[in-house]
Structure formats: C-alpha cells, structure tokens
C-alpha cells in the first residue's frame, strides 16, 4: 500500500485525470459556442464568426448589465473590506468565548443557504424601498463576501508577531501609526486576496440578484438567467465566455499575488 502496485497506480492516475477533465472541459465548452455563426446554439459550431460578440456589444441591455455588475461588485468589495478588515483585527483581540461567537456571526452568511438569505433580504428590501437599487444589491453581496475578507485577513494577521506591536507601543507609537507602519504592510496579500474574492463573489452571484434586481439593478448574471429561460440565444454564450475570461484573469492575479483561496468558497 505504501507503494501501489503498477496497475493500481495506473488506474488511480488515469481516473484522477479523467475527473479533472470532467471538472474543467465542460466549463470550456461555452467558449467555442460563443463564436457560432448560426442563429441558434450548436456545440461545437459548424461555422465560425464574431457576430454574437458584435450583437453583445451593440445591445444596450447587455452593455448596461455588464456595467451594472461591475459597479455593484466594486461597491460590494469596498463595503466588505471596510467592515471586514477592522473586524478581522478586532477578532484576534477578543477573549476566546466572545471571539468564537463573533466569528460565528461573521461566517453566518456562508452557512445560511443562499436561497433563505435571498428571500429574507428581498423581503426587507421591499419593505424599505431598497429593492431594485444598486446600493441594496451591493449591501447584499457585501454580506456574502464579508466571510471571505475576514478569513483572508485573519490568515494574513497570523504573520504579524504581537511582540512587534508591543515593541512599537512601548516606543510610543500611536495605534494608528502601529497599524499603518506594521500591521498594514504585513496584511497586504490578505487584503488583495480578500478584495479579489469579494469582487468575484459579487460578480458571479445570481440567487440574491434574481430576487433583488428589479429594473434598476439588472446584473450580467440576472440578464443571463433571464435569457436562458426566455430566448436561449448564442449571445448568452458570449456573456458566459466574458465571465469565464474575467474569472480567469482574477484567478491568475490571485495566484501571482501568492494568496490561496483557502477553505470554503462559493
């Protein structure tokens, strides 16, 4: 067992590679479909063209959906970072029992099934008139993204030795100076990692978005969702390809910064 027999070894490696192919290839199947020339979806296309990309970039609705998605994702990222960064630092200084309880609260949006969060937030947003607004959507996405920010910065903070902070305080540095000159430079990877996850969490999110979008905050995933259910045109494949492209860029970016997407992800 410490060394599998050659035939078993071969079976293990072959099946692992097949499973990886099953994971990756179906995602990539969308990309050739987006270069279809026909006016219906065929996989793989029989003739190639850019016509659906032209259609996407000439259609005011797809344009606006892409733009709204980017705006909401940026706003959600800023909110999640602004609330999550101090929270991650504060958590470390709490007594163990309170820290466990607060960690539970901060991770709750990751544990509660999204359909339940979506219906709950939708209801309250309806009652206070924030439904169908970009700020309402950004707040909802920030709640989903907050756990990733807290986790990422929490991991980065483990690299900050508390004796450095004590030494700085002993030398008379103010808390703000200590944060700016010691903590902050050391948690930059966690901040960037948290920001990237927060952005992609919002940009990819569909369930809350489908309920909350209304007319004022129709994001790209909502537009895709509606198109799949109504017309199913090759333009959807273009939108899906653009989303894969953006996720790919962010994936490589996150790898280059050297942060790992640890633990739980959505």
């Amino acid at each position: 067992m410490s060394q599998l027999s050659p035939s078993l070894r071969w079976i293990a490696y072959a099946s692992a590679n097949l499973v990886i192919a099953f994971l990756v290839l179906p995602i990539l199947a969308v990309i050739p479909t987006s270069f279809n020339q026909a006016s219906f979806i065929t996989v793989p296309p029989t003739a190639w063209s850019w016509r659906w990309y032209e259609a996407f970039f000439q259609d005011i609705e797809w344009q606006s959906a892409l733009w709204v998605s980017i705006q909401i994702a940026v706003l959600a990222t800023l909110i999640a970072l602004a609330a999550g960064t101090p929270a991650a630092i504060g958590l470390q200084r709490l007594p163990p029992r309170l820290r466990a309880a607060m960690t539970g609260l901060f991770l709750a949006p990751m544990i509660v099934p999204v359909i339940v969060s979506a219906v709950a937030i939708y209801r309250t947003a309806l009652d206070i008139g924030l439904n169908g607004t970009r700020i309402g959507m950004a707040l909802s996405h920030a709640a989903l993204a907050l756990p990733f920010v807290v986790i990422n910065i929490g991991i980065a903070l483990r690299g900050v030795d508390s004796r450095w902070l004590q030494a700085a305080a002993g030398l008379g540095a103010t808390p703000w100076t200590i944060f700016r000159t010691i903590t902050l430079p050391n948690i930059v990877p966690g901040l960037v990692g948290g920001a990237v996850f927060a952005f992609i969490t919002s940009f990819d999110e569909v369930v809350i978005a489908v309920f909350m979008a209304g007319y004022g905050a129709k994001t790209l995933p909502v537009k895709i969702w509606e198109s799949i259910r109504l017309e199913f045109t090759p333009v959807v494949a273009v939108a899906a390809t653009l989303m894969i492209l953006l996720a790919g860029i962010l994936f490589i970016l996150a790898r280059m910064i050297g942060t790992k997407r640890n633990g739980v992800t959505v």
Partner: peptide
C-alpha cells in the same frame, strides 16, 4: 480550484448546452 472561480450559472449553462 479553477472551477470555484467560475459562476455556478455559467457552469450550469455549459451543461445545458452539453
């Protein structure tokens, strides 16, 4: 790890095509 980054909606759409 890569599939984590792709929207569930996009992955589901892919399977609809396939």
């Amino acid at each position: 790890l890569f599939p984590f980054w792709i929207s569930v909606l996009v992955r589901t759409f892919s399977w609809m095509l396939l």
